[in-house]
Nucleic acid binder design. Structure first.
Lengths: 182, 182
DNA sequence: CACAATACGGAGACTGTCTCCGTTTGGCAA
DNA sequence: TTGCCAAACGGAGACAGTCTCCGTATTGTG
């Protein structure tokens, strides 16, 4: 890739991060281009779809998912606390921006979605937590990671849509956690 | 209201029902107007916002919510079955059209939303089910109807977004149900 | 039947998406 | 260094959707 192309690509990703944070995932892409100091054509050449731009943006986010999982798994204590704190972190992770939860949670298993590859990081992370809990015999029999992701994702979506406070989210996560525990 | 105005209003609601069913809630409103055989100006005079049009559309739906609740409450059997069948009906009720679950679930408690008034029907219905379950001492202590609506709504949203089959939804609802039960 | 009051409708302003193509730039080979 | 051309740029503009304004048409009442 040519030097100017690489430069513009980076500028676009950075601009997208800014603009999406400010205005949510529906923000005008032409604005992203303008903010990056390039023409719309350049944006669409680098990122043919809105999704592909998000995919690029979420690259570094995957690292954060993994780091957070490591941290949560360090925590010793009752299984319920472990699960609950993972669920809370999960909501935090996918609530990066307005509209993020819906975008991410809606992309599980939708093949062809650029974001769906990133979702795998979430499923893998959740799987690690589930493995730990299963070792402790704390879970009901048939728990699958994707299922848990979807359920918690749903909570995050409504929290995001409705502007819910953490205090409103907590009890919902408790319900979910208790539903998954043996 | 003048006779022609009433006629157009009805035509618009009927057209909206058609178009939204075919294309989801993001469908072009000008198309709805055209389908109804009126100009865009007429549509926007009757329904200043997309929401207000939906609100009118959902009028008859409220009746269906109540009927369904009646039917579910007739069912005798273990509390868990009652709750589960309500949750399933709930998902069905709000999944009228593509995008419906997100629209409805995102409108709880958002005051000023025309749809939010319709959501009250859902909360009330859920409350009736909760009352029954509480009489049987089957629920955990602090269950609120809105909370349950949001949680199940979240499930419906991800089911809708991801094109999930009822078989995928069922286990998620079981988790939710078990989370709410004592 | 006439005349307000009420309602209609479509042209068009505005915004966002995405493409096409003439112009510019980077980097390699001579 | 220079010249070349593939690679990349950028912005005009086609297209679609939202929503408004205002001249025109319709209703129903006195």
């Amino acid at each position: 890739m040519r030097a100017d192309a690489r430069r513009n690509r980076e500028a676009l990703i950075e601009a997208a991060r800014e603009v999406f944070r400010e205005q949510g995932y529906d923000a005008s892409l032409d604005l992203v281009a303008k903010r990056a100091g390039v023409g719309p054509g350049t944006l669409y050449r680098h990122f043919p779809t809105r999704e592909s731009l998000m995919d690029a943006m979420l690259q570094s986010w995957v690292d954060r998912v993994n780091d957070t999982t490591d941290k949560v798994l360090l925590h010793e204590g009752p299984p319920r606390d472990l699960l609950l704190s993972w669920l809370q972190e999960y909501v935090g992770l996918i609530s990066v921006h307005k509209g993020g939860p819906a975008k991410i949670t809606g992309s599980f298993g939708v093949e062809g979605s650029a974001i769906s590859t990133k979702c795998q990081a979430l499923v893998d992370a959740t799987d690690r937590v589930i493995d730990r809990l299963e070792d402790q015999g704390a879970l009901r029999a048939d728990v699958e990671a994707v299922q848990m992701c979807r359920l918690v994702g749903g909570v995050a979506v409504v929290a995001d849509n409705g502007g819910l406070e953490p205090d409103d989210v907590r009890p919902m996560l408790e319900v979910v956690a208790d539903g998954f525990l043996a």
